[in-house]
């Protein structure tokens, strides 16, 4: 019953997002595309934080790699092919996640948080020092990737609605993939690891392999989000690898409710809209935003997603 209602709500939300371009102007289309990109990013982190119990504070590293990958793959004044550059960007992020994962997964708990942060910061300073990657000034991508396939162009990413639909499709695909993953035997093992890793090992699970696979999947999807971000703004800077972004996305996951996937989407919407709305109202927007987050975490231990669930139960 509850599963059926959850599905109805998700389908309704998807329909609303699909119809949104009919109503909204360019500004809101771009804003919503940005939010959906953050939602993809947040869902990927939820696989680690919410399902596996791995609190990564360096997840932006893979977001940034996806973004810089598009820059590297784009000719200076021509378009890269979406069908080549997107899989390569995702692949680059996945490979980086496999290498970093092998190293950081030796740690757990607080040291895991610190070590993931350290690796992301290493990449951050590498990019700052790199001339080819534009250093601290960042780099521009002058032409958005082309969707032309055998002479046919299904949608132009230069049109706000065209790009919006690409992001919406990526959001839906990410949700479905992660839903499949979390409901698989693998996903159940991740939940076991989050609950009691030493017991899992005593039962015979090689838990490090499971954690590494989760880390790679999460990194790959974060790379997808970074690629889309670079496509949208045509500008890539070291901030995309930085700890601020890692913290923001962690906040979205916690605010939305860990271990639900859709909670992360909700968290992304609420956090970005709040940031946007509050900057319009006051210059001191960080203060009310901080208060809101503190209150939300205190009052809603299961996040906004948990609030929805509670409302549903009351309704029953």
């Amino acid at each position: 019953m509850q599963a059926a209602r959850e599905r109805t709500m998700l389908l309704a939300a998807f329909a609303l997002l699909a119809l949104f371009p009919l109503l909204a102007g360019t500004f809101y289309l771009q804003l919503f595309a940005k939010i959906m990109i953050m939602a993809i990013f947040a869902m990927s982190l939820d696989l680690l934080v919410g399902y596996t119990g791995l609190v990564s504070f360096g997840h932006a590293a893979f977001f940034g790699i996806g973004a810089y990958a598009l820059f590297v793959l784009s000719p200076q004044y021509a378009a890269a092919s979406l069908y080549l550059s997107l899989p390569m960007a995702i692949g680059a992020a996945a490979v980086a996640a496999a290498v970093i994962g092998l190293l950081v997964l030796r740690a757990s708990g607080v040291s895991f948080i610190m070590v993931t942060l350290a690796f992301a910061q290493m990449l951050f300073y590498y990019v700052i020092g790199s001339k080819t990657l534009g250093g601290s000034d960042g780099v521009y991508i002058y032409v958005k990737p082309s969707t032309t396939l055998f002479g046919w162009t299904p949608v132009s990413l230069d049109r706000p609605a065209g790009f919006y639909y690409l992001v919406l499709a990526a959001l839906a695909a990410t949700y479905l993939v992660l839903r499949f993953v979390t409901r698989s035997l693998f996903g159940h093992a991740l939940l076991g690891i989050r609950s009691n890793e030493s017991r899992m090992r005593a039962l015979g699970f090689a838990t490090t392999s499971y954690k590494l696979a989760a880390f790679v999947i999460a990194g790959a999807i974060a790379g997808l989000a970074g690629y889309l971000d670079a496509t949208q703004f045509g500008f890539v800077s070291p901030d995309l690898l930085g700890w601020r972004l890692s913290g923001e996305v962690l906040m979205m996951v916690i605010l939305g409710g860990m271990g639900t996937l859709y909670g992360s989407v909700l968290g992304a919407f609420v956090l970005v809209l709040l940031q946007d709305g509050l900057t319009d109202v006051t210059r001191h927007w960080l203060l009310p935003l901080g208060l809101f987050i503190i209150l939300a975490v205190l009052l809603l231990p299961r996040g906004l997603g948990g609030l929805l669930r509670r409302a549903e139960k009351a309704h029953d």
Partner: peptide, 22 residues
């Protein structure tokens, strides 16, 4: 107990098998 039993399924990590179908 189901999770415990899963430990003995030697089929990789089980990424492509939906838990409720096993």
């Amino acid at each position: 107990c189901r999770l415990a039993a899963q430990a003995r399924l030697a089929h990789g990590l089980g990424l492509f098998r939906q838990a409720r179908d096993v």
